[in-house]
Design a protein around this nucleic acid. Structure first.
Length: 109
DNA sequence: GCACTGACTTGCC
DNA sequence: CGGCAAGCCAGTG
């Protein structure tokens, strides 16, 4: 049994749940926190199943602060609305002041 | 069972 | 400073 691979998704969910409201993080940040800096894609893939989980995937974006995964949400601007609802400025699918709102799990946790 | 794609990141040219 | 290619893991065809 390989918990390092099997628990990867679970770890991603846990970290994503620990994201404070009004903050955002990147896939790479979570991946790096899990020790898989190059496996950032897997984090996004895990988010693909976040629909059945209580994971705020809308707080997770790519390292550019761009809402790349908004397409996977129900509507089209739902992800943006959720972020704006938490006080995050989002313009053209891109988070404004991203580095200021950036939440690093390896530093905050 | 093999190959390609995908909600990404980093490094090299 | 900007663009392209490689790497990683998992899921689907």
């Amino acid at each position: 049994m390989k918990p390092e691979t099997l628990g990867f998704f679970e770890k991603v969910y846990e970290v994503a749940r620990q994201i404070p409201s009004g903050r955002v993080t990147s896939y790479g940040a979570i991946a790096k926190y899990l020790g898989a800096t190059k496996s950032a894609r897997i984090v996004g893939y895990a988010m693909n199943s976040s629909g059945e989980k209580d994971v705020p995937a809308h707080r997770v974006v790519n390292r550019k602060g761009l809402l790349t995964g908004k397409h996977h949400f129900e509507g089209t601007n739902l992800m943006q609305q959720l972020l704006e609802n938490e006080g995050v400025e989002v313009v053209d699918n891109q988070i404004q002041n991203f580095e200021a709102l950036f939440w690093d799990p390896s530093k905050e946790i």
